[in-house]
Design a protein around this nucleic acid. Structure first.
Length: 102
DNA sequence: TTCCTGACGCTCG
DNA sequence: GCGAGCGCCAGGA
């Protein structure tokens, strides 16, 4: 799905501007890379809303399209994962995308 | 409309 | 270096 389509979908879901921006920012994370909640919030235009970012990830209206698993904590830990499979799956997905590490 | 919660982050002890 | 506590913003009941 192209970027415009994603945005249109998000708007169609009647999401707030905040949610839309955060999700778009998440969608913009390159494959094989990760971003912290703080960085993501910053990118979305809400540098201090890193707490709310987590909530948006949890809503995740476009689960398969939005790579929410690429969002990790600043500590270096993965954080959590609401989608089926949980944090375990999140780790596997990241490992898979970073195939360079095996 | 008000209060509580949450996939976090930073500071203090 | 580790553990506990407070603050952050937006959503939902």
């Amino acid at each position: 799905m192209h970027r415009g389509g994603v945005i249109r979908e998000l708007k169609r879901r009647k999401l707030t501007e905040f949610q839309t921006k955060v999700l778009i920012a998440t969608y913009s994370i390159p494959k094989g890379k990760t971003m912290t909640y703080k960085e993501l919030a910053k990118k979305a235009g809400y540098p201090n809303a890193y707490r709310a970012v987590g909530s948006v990830m949890k809503m995740n209206p476009l689960a398969p399209t939005i790579p929410c698993h690429r969002v990790v904590k600043s500590d270096g830990t993965l954080g959590s994962y609401s989608a089926p499979g949980g944090t375990r799956k999140k780790a596997q997905l990241l490992k898979k995308e970073r195939a360079k590490f095996g």
